[in-house]
Design a binder for these strands. Sequence first.
DNA 1: CGGATAATTGACTTTTACGTAAATTAACGA
DNA 2: TCGTTAATTTACGTAAAAGTCAATTATCCG
Lengths: 129, 129
Amino acid sequence: MRDTYTITELTKEFGVSTRTIRFYEDEGLIKPIRRGRTRLFRPSDRVLLKQILRGKRLGFSIAEIREIIEVYKTPSGGEEGQISLMIERIKEKRSELEQKRRDIEDTMREMDEAEETCLERLAELGVSH
Amino acid sequence: MRDTYTITELTKEFGVSTRTIRFYEDEGLIKPIRRGRTRLFRPSDRVLLKQILRGKRLGFSIAEIREIIEVYKTPSGGEEGQISLMIERIKEKRSELEQKRRDIEDTMREMDEAEETCLERLAELGVSH
DNA sequence: CGGATAATTGACTTTTACGTAAATTAACGA
DNA sequence: TCGTTAATTTACGTAAAAGTCAATTATCCG
């Protein structure tokens, strides 16, 4: 496990452009360190990028991903109100995820039906000649 | 179960604007019938809208949703090549959905961890005064 | 039948999430 | 040291997915 990555290494690993990574930096989601002007990404930056891309695949907007990431890095210090509020947000996010999960299951079911129809159709064609 | 719905009924049921529904019509995803100039949505149109919005929640683009919908309405007629191709597309969509499912599970796990950290933190605070 | 209410159309605007291109600068190898 | 990569910055461009606004046109109800 390396201790820093260049931007191009990350673009290759994750299949995104440098522009995309810099965009996430502009948005304040990642804060790589610099050697001179050049960005150096620590393992933690890499993990963040992975989380961002995971959020994107699930259809979350940058704003929503920001919220999710905020939740991940629960401040180990913080007053009771803050923490209770954080727990609330976690619950909300969880129910969004549960909705998405239901959506996936529903879609999967319809895919299964569609495939079965296709297979039946193929069987018919296979027998008929 | 009604046999037609007006556009505003659907906007209320699904929490989307009329513009959104008309946009999906422009894109050819829904084809409501008309009474004069006014749109009338049949139950099948309503189901389509539901499927579109489900796709949206999962982060699929309109183009991708179009593909998914094409898959749903497997042509009951069609030659072998067509049908095999359809089965291929179903497999692809399914693996996209499986990826999303993994992404959800991973995110859920991290949410659980974050919540636990919060709860521990609350316990500490609860004991310390 | 007349006026409020609701739906449509068309055009322009906005937001998000980058793409792209040009100019600049740094780094590295022969 | 010099030239060739490679990375950065700045700024404008763009596609997708609607939002918004204005002008019409039905429609319905008292």
